[in-house]
Amino acid sequence: MRMIFWAVILFGGAYSFLHAYFLFKDKNKIGAFGISLVGSVILILTFLVRLK
């Protein structure tokens, strides 16, 4: 269960940052900032969740 949790978190964070990169490349800086913020929240909130 823990490995699945980490896989989902890492995939979600990587996907968010890669999507932000492509938005930044297309000159959509506000969208890139928003998606980067979502990726950061995914990675930061991971440490607040405890699996039982």
Score class of each variant (00 low, 15 high):
35 I>Y: 08
52 K>Y: 09
25 K>V: 07
49 V>A: 06
13 G>H: 03
34 G>E: 05
51 L>H: 02
13 G>P: 07
2 R>K: 12
45 L>T: 10
28 N>Q: 12
4 I>K: 13
48 L>C: 07
11 F>E: 01
5 F>P: 00
14 A>C: 15
34 G>A: 13
18 L>P: 01
50 R>I: 06
7 A>D: 04
37 L>G: 12
21 Y>G: 01
14 A>Y: 13
37 L>A: 15
26 D>Q: 08
52 K>V: 09
16 S>T: 10
37 L>W: 11
7 A>Y: 13
12 G>H: 01
45 L>F: 15
49 V>S: 02
50 R>G: 00
33 F>L: 13
30 I>A: 08
42 I>W: 03
12 G>Q: 04
11 F>A: 10
13 G>S: 12
7 A>W: 08
33 F>P: 00
22 F>T: 04
8 V>G: 07
24 F>E: 02
47 F>K: 00
5 F>A: 00
50 R>E: 04
3 M>G: 07
14 A>N: 14
9 I>D: 05
3 M>K: 13
24 F>H: 08
45 L>G: 01
28 N>I: 02
14 A>R: 05
5 F>M: 02
42 I>E: 00
23 L>A: 09
37 L>S: 13
47 F>W: 11
44 I>S: 04
9 I>S: 06
33 F>D: 00
12 G>I: 03
29 K>S: 11
25 K>P: 00
26 D>Y: 03
28 N>L: 04
20 A>T: 05
27 K>N: 15
34 G>P: 00
13 G>Y: 03
16 S>H: 05
29 K>R: 10
28 N>W: 02
2 R>D: 11
27 K>L: 13
3 M>W: 12
19 H>M: 09
50 R>S: 11
8 V>M: 09
22 F>I: 06
43 L>F: 10
21 Y>W: 15
8 V>K: 07
44 I>W: 04
47 F>I: 01
16 S>R: 01
10 L>P: 07
30 I>V: 12
23 L>H: 09
1 M>C: 10
22 F>M: 02
15 Y>H: 08
28 N>R: 14
34 G>F: 10
6 W>S: 10
13 G>V: 07
51 L>G: 07
45 L>N: 05
14 A>S: 15
30 I>Y: 05
1 M>W: 09
52 K>T: 10
15 Y>A: 15
31 G>C: 08
13 G>Q: 02
21 Y>P: 00
9 I>M: 12
32 A>V: 14
11 F>M: 06
29 K>Y: 14
11 F>G: 03
28 N>S: 10
50 R>A: 05
39 G>F: 03
25 K>Q: 08
47 F>E: 01
39 G>D: 01
52 K>Q: 14
36 S>K: 06
20 A>I: 04
41 V>A: 05
29 K>C: 09
14 A>E: 08
